[in-house]
Amino acid sequence: MITGTEKPIEEILAMVEPYQRLILAGCHGCVTVCRVGGAKEVQVLASTLRLAREAAGRPLEIHEVSLERQCDPEYVEKLRGLVGGYQAVLSIACGAGIQFLAEKFPATPLLPGINTGFLGVTVRQGEWSERCQGCGDCILHLTGGICPVTRCAKSLFHGPCGGSVRGSCEVDKEIPCGWQLIIDRLEALGQMENYGRLKPCKGWSSARDGGPRRIIREDML
C-alpha cells in the first residue's frame, strides 16, 4: 500500500486559515489501511479543526466526505457537484489522490492534509515498513523475494557494502542489511546460484530518473 503520516495540526490550521468553508476528503484506499486518511480520520480531523477554529473565534464549516479512491476518475466525479459550494478541498489521501483532485477541479484550491510516505507493508498494527520503490524492473525472483533497491540503503545490486556489520546497516543499527537478508534467504532456499545471476548493471531507465512515468495498456484503451 501507499503509506502516509499525519501532518502536524498546526501546519493544517495554518493552511486552512484563509477559509471559512471547505471539504475534507478522505479515501477508502491505502490511507484507510494505514489509518491516516480514511472515513474515521476525516471525522477526527474535522472535529479537531472545528474545535480549534471555534475556540479561536473563526468558525470553519467542513463538509466531510470519503471517496472510494481519490486516484480513479469515476469516484472523484462524485465531488463535482459539491466543490463549487466550498472555498477549498483539504484531502487526506496520498499525494496521487490529492493531485488527481487538483487536476479534476482546477478552480478549487487543494490542500494536503497528510504527508505521503512509501510503498510498504503492515508489519504489525501501528507499524509500516517500506518494501518497494517502483523501479519498474523487478528482480525479486533472483534475490530471494527481498528487494535490494529498497532494503539496501544504497540500493546496491551486487552484495553488501563495507558498512554491513553483524547483519545491520551502517545507516542505522535498527535497519537490517538488505544484502544480509538476501543472502540468508538465498542460502535457506538453496538458491545461492542466483547471487551470480544478477544483472551486470541495473537499468534505471524504467525508474523515476526519466521523469514522471505512465503506463499505457493498448488492450484497455
Binding site: P8, E11, L13, A14, L51, E54, A55, A56, G57
Partner: peptide
C-alpha cells in the same frame, strides 16, 4: 472551555499553536 466562552460571547478567542 474556550469554545463555550466564544459561543457565549464572553471570552477571548483561544489561539492554537502555530497561530494565525
Amino acid at each position: 472551555s474556550p469554545v463555550n466562552l466564544v459561543r457565549a460571547g464572553s471570552g477571548q478567542p483561544a489561539e492554537a499553536e502555530g497561530g494565525r
